[in-house]
Amino acid sequence: MALDKAKGRDLSRWNFSHTRQVENIKFLIVMIAKILAKGAAADIVGYVMREFHDKEQFTPDTWRVIDSDGILGNDYRRIVDSFDIGASLNKRISKPIGHIAVSFDKADLPRLTDEFMVQLAKEYMERMGIRDTQYLIVRHLETGSPHFHIVYNRVNLHGKAIDESNNFDKSRDATKAIKLKYGLTFSPKKKLYEDAIAEMKPKIQAAMYRCKSWDEFRRRLSPAGITVEFYNDRDTGKPQGIRFSDGEFTFNGSKIDRAFSYKRLDKFFAKNAGIKETQPQQTAPISVTAKVKESPVANIVESIIETGCQALGGLFQVGPGYDPEEEAFIHRMKKKPKKKKGRSL
Rank of each mutant, 00 (worst) to 15 (best):
G129K: 04
G129M: 12
I130L: 12
D132Y: 05
D132K: 10
Q134W: 02
Y135E: 03
Y135D: 05
I137F: 07
G144M: 12
G144H: 14
S145W: 12
F148V: 13
H149W: 02
H149Y: 10
V151I: 15
N153V: 00
A161I: 00
D163F: 01
D163G: 05
E164V: 01
E164H: 07
S165K: 05
F168T: 02
F168H: 04
K170T: 01
S171F: 07
R172G: 00
T175L: 04
K179R: 15
K179Y: 09
K179M: 12
Y182S: 08
T185E: 09
F186L: 10
F186Y: 08
F186C: 08
S187H: 06
S187M: 11
S187W: 02
K190R: 14
K190L: 12
L192A: 08
D195Q: 10
D195L: 04
D195C: 04
A196K: 01
A196D: 04
A198W: 00
M200T: 07
M200Y: 08
P202V: 13
A206K: 03
A207I: 07
Y209R: 08
Y209F: 15
C211R: 03
K212A: 03
S213Q: 00
W214Y: 01
D215W: 04
D215P: 02
D215L: 08
D215R: 13
D215S: 14
E216L: 14
F217W: 07
R218H: 12
R218N: 15
R220T: 13
L221V: 08
S222D: 12
S222C: 13
A224W: 14
G225F: 06
T227G: 13
E229C: 11
Y231A: 00
R234W: 04
G237F: 06
K238Q: 06
Q240T: 03
G241V: 08
I242T: 02
R243N: 14
R243S: 11
F244R: 10
F244Y: 15
F244N: 10
F244H: 13
S245P: 11
S245D: 12
G247E: 01
E248C: 04
F249Y: 11
S254Y: 14
K255M: 14
K255S: 15
D257H: 15
D257C: 13
R258N: 11
R258M: 11
A259P: 01
Y262H: 08
R264Y: 09
R264Q: 09
